[in-house]
Nucleic acid binder design. Structure first.
Lengths: 224, 224
DNA sequence: ACCTGAACACCGTTCAAGT
DNA sequence: ACCTGAACACCGTTCAAGT
């Protein structure tokens, strides 16, 4: 994909050996700005370095490679997930927590592939896990069943958002949906797909999310 | 990530205007070979062209860009998903179908991000959808509820595999799990995460998949 | 229409050298 | 220890030209 912005502002005005005064927190903060304002695809080591006014490879004095930088970025962003107040029933609070997780992920759609593909074990991820386990305990789940239930809820919510996000972000959303509907409707010898072409071409969204989540919570409730 | 294989075998021995005899099916077949043998990350337009003995940009006479090539590749691979025989109960068959879908996806772990991020509306995807809708009909679901149930099952299964696959593929799987366990166990003021450090650091797998799937099928059964 | 040659505008990362 | 300069080994894609 082409069309990059021409950028060339403050380049390094230092010679070798002169410090720029960088530290990993500064780099992370700038990475966050880039990720939130322009998306992860714009987050390259070279662009980041340029914004910080250093040579591209200067970043490697603070982060082993790009993926460790991204790992830290992922956990730092999780701080934005809203945690329910603790005043309602365990079920209502779990629903609220998964809803706000979904909202958070949809707001950071481009980061979802990263969240899916690497373990989240930073401080913010742990804090969210603790809250969720607390709610599951109120639902009557402790020990291994609680751990399994937590994983299932997270897998469901992250998986759902992962499939929802790219479609929401697609600039040709409407055309894409129309193309799906056409493909389903005109499929030969596939009567059910043809009949349901319209609802099926509607991408999974809020309603499906709530339905599946309710089924999972029913299951959790029954495990008690 | 560095360390690329040096390759330089048969390069183009043609001048401009001389045809190589390519067509899109040949290119797709070669793309499939590369994807299955070396993984999608090795599937670059330049490498593909080299294997086919043409200049990199020759491929653009047959595919608009890399992403449309990948779209066709994704559907073509779906032909490998095993479809149940039709002799058991709707529930057993749905379980079997989702299991084989998960197996397929895990075998093509590197393709999962692509399956998640683009609509699958090719002939193979439609065929699988029709089978699933048939099973849901036997479960008593028709019309929109059936469409919703189909989406939920697919979202769950794809989402699950998406989170399972990268962990299975991780060469430092054991070290990574140990790091998670340590992080959870030593988290201060997070008693539940500490207590459950071991099961939580065990990545979601077959057992969690079956549990969540059963809950969803219970929900489907209750909708009838 | 299908292909090559050459280029453009990028990547992540490493190595050697400076202070 | 932290940084620069320069390079390595790649990318996807476009443009002009050949038959």
């Amino acid at each position: 994909m082409p069309v990059r912005k021409k950028a060339r502002g403050r380049t390094a005005r230092r010679g070798p050996g002169q410090r720029a005064g960088l530290d990993s927190a500064m780099i992370l903060a700038e990475a966050r700005v880039v990720a939130e304002r322009e998306g992860v695809e714009q987050l390259t080591m070279r662009r980041l370095a340029e914004r910080l006014g250093v040579a591209p490879n200067a970043l490697y004095s603070h982060f082993a490679d790009k993926s460790t930088l991204i790992d830290e970025l992922l956990d730092s962003l999780l701080a934005k997930v809203e945690v329910p107040s603790g005043e309602k029933s365990w079920r209502e609070e779990l629903v609220a927590l998964m809803r706000s997780t979904r909202r958070f992920l949809l707001a950071h759609d481009d980061l979802l592939p990263y969240y899916l593909s690497r373990p989240t074990r930073g401080p913010n991820a742990i804090r969210l896990g603790e809250v969720t386990l607390g709610l599951l305990e109120r639902a009557g789940l402790k020990g291994e069943p609680a751990a399994t239930a937590l994983q299932i809820l997270l897998v469901y919510t992250f998986g759902f958002a992962a499939q929802e996000a790219p479609r929401l972000a697609d600039p040709e959303h409407d055309e894409s949906r129309a193309a799906s509907e056409m493909a389903f409707r005109t499929a030969r010898n596939q009567p059910r797909m043809s009949d349901l072409a319209e609802p099926l071409s509607e991408y999974p969204g809020k309603d499906s999310f709530e339905m599946g989540l309710a089924w999972l919570l029913d299951g959790i409730e029954g495990t008690r």
